[in-house]
């Protein structure tokens, strides 16, 4: 089965739950395990939170969320047109944050990498950020 959706939403924190729940509903026809659903929800939440907190630090912008299913392969893209990431190499390191003063842990990308099979990030100063997340969902009935 091939399937796809694309949505745009405002970069406000109320939409974090909205975004992760949309993706969770989208993959339900594949009969994912509870742990697969939680993994995907957590990774989506991390990427969307980054876009809200770091992409648009002083304004409300737009976030585009795309998800594609190709058989059991899930590909998710979270895109913002915000300020971009200054030092991508550092941003990907565990426990690195530009906002420690507001109690941020710096673990976002590490968690995405732990819960997904593949994570890639591209960013440009003042040119936005795109995070791509992929994971193979294994049919529960096939086990």
């Amino acid at each position: 089965m091939k399937n796809k959706f694309k949505i745009n939403f405002s970069s406000i924190s109320e939409n974090e739950a909205f975004a992760r729940n949309v993706v969770a509903s989208f993959i339900l026809p594949l009969n994912p395990t509870l742990s697969e659903i939680s993994d995907v929800k957590t990774a989506v939440s991390e990427a969307v939170t980054n876009a809200i907190v770091h992409g648009y630090p002083d304004s409300v912008g737009e976030i585009e969320l795309t998800a594609e299913l190709d058989g059991f392969d899930l590909h998710i893209e979270i895109k913002d047109d915000g300020v971009g990431i200054d030092d991508l190499k550092k941003a990907l390191e565990p426990f690195y944050s530009t906002k420690f003063e507001s109690e941020r842990s710096g673990m976002g990308f590490t968690i995405m990498k732990t819960f997904m099979d593949d994570v890639s990030v591209s960013s440009k100063k003042n040119g936005g950020t795109v995070v791509k997340l992929s994971k193979k969902i294994i049919d529960e009935n096939a086990r």
Binding site: A17, R20, S38, K41, T42, S45, E46, T49, S102, E103, R104, S105, G106, M107, G108, T110, I111
Partner: peptide, 13 residues
């Protein structure tokens, strides 16, 4: 029922 890395920051704080 759900927590992400923001929660880690809350706990460490």
């Amino acid at each position: 029922t759900f927590m992400d890395s923001t929660g880690i920051g809350v706990f460490i704080g």
